[in-house]
Simulated assay, not measured.
Amino acid sequence: MTSRPPNPSPRPAPSGELRASHDDRETVVEQLRDAAAEGRIDLDELDSRLEQALKSKTHAELAVLTADLPRPDSFASQPPLVLEGGLYGASRGPGRWEVPGRVIAHAGVGGVKVDFTRVECRLTEVAVEAYGETSGVTIVVPDGWAADTSGMDPGIGGLTDKTTPDRLPGTPLLRLTGAGGVGGVTIRHPNRWERRKLHSNPTQD
């Protein structure tokens, strides 16, 4: 009795021809919605691309729909921004600055303030590590941004969260971790004085 030769192993499909999953399609849908919220594509084009995304069966078909849009992970891969309060304090903002995927703030004796009110952030999430230490950390976010503070240790100084849960489309979620220390950590939207300054000079760099 002669044995049959083994069946040849199937060749792996090129990455673009791999079948797309529900999660793959949903990721592209979210990216398209964010692009529309940022004004990169208009509503008619959004509807057209969303329809194609939901019908796409391969990674290649999905890739065509976002080929002319910034990659969400291009900013997430940047080195973290580290702010050290030291003796005299440190701050970032309120001018325009490029937001990486991770921000680390050590208050030290002088304290730290991180102001996101004038930034243009293309990330869906930003990780912020805040350590209140002696003088505290203050984080200011625009209206429409939301924060998840469940991973924060309030410490002696405590955590003060004055943000609203109403997150607008196309805005990032701040995931706040760290420890309040003695000085505490505060995350909030702009106060009255900061709003007045924003309205009087909306294009400040």
Rank of each mutant, 00 (worst) to 15 (best):
L32E: 13
I187R: 01
G170S: 02
A20T: 14
P79L: 01
Y131R: 05
R4K: 06
V109D: 10
L50W: 07
L18A: 03
A20F: 15
A146M: 15
P94D: 08
V185Y: 02
M152K: 13
P190W: 07
V112G: 03
R175D: 05
L168E: 12
T27S: 15
T160V: 11
E194A: 08
R118I: 12
D205P: 15
L69R: 02
E194C: 01
Q78N: 07
R19L: 14
R175Y: 07
S77E: 05
G111K: 02
W97Q: 05
E45R: 14
P100V: 02
G89Q: 04
P94V: 09
L173P: 01
D42E: 12
L174Q: 01
A147W: 00
R102E: 10
T138S: 12
R71D: 11
V126M: 06
H22I: 11
E38R: 12
T138L: 11
P6F: 07
L123C: 09
L176R: 00
Q204W: 10
N201T: 07
D68N: 12
R167S: 13
P80D: 07
E129V: 04
V112P: 02
R4D: 10
D115H: 06
T171D: 03
D23E: 14
E129M: 04
G108K: 08
A60K: 13
R25A: 08
S21N: 12
I156C: 03
I139V: 11
H22D: 10
I41V: 09
R40P: 10
E45L: 15
L159M: 11
A146F: 05
R195M: 13
A130Q: 03
L43P: 05
N201P: 07
T163M: 00
D115I: 09
P94T: 07
G181T: 14
S77C: 13
L159T: 10
G101N: 01
I139N: 06
R188F: 01
S21Q: 14
V141A: 05
I187E: 00
T66Y: 02
L50P: 10
K162R: 15
G178P: 04
R33D: 14
P94W: 09
G184Q: 04
G151F: 03
C121D: 02
R96Q: 14
G144K: 11
V103Q: 03
Y88Q: 10
V114M: 04
H199W: 07
E129D: 09
G89V: 04
T163G: 01
K57Y: 08
V182I: 11
L176C: 03
A53K: 01
D166I: 13
V137S: 10
G39Y: 11
K113Y: 02
N7W: 06
V182M: 08
L176S: 01
G111F: 08
D166T: 15
D47A: 12
A13S: 11
I156R: 09
T203N: 15
P10I: 14
S56N: 13
L123A: 04
L176Q: 00
P80A: 08
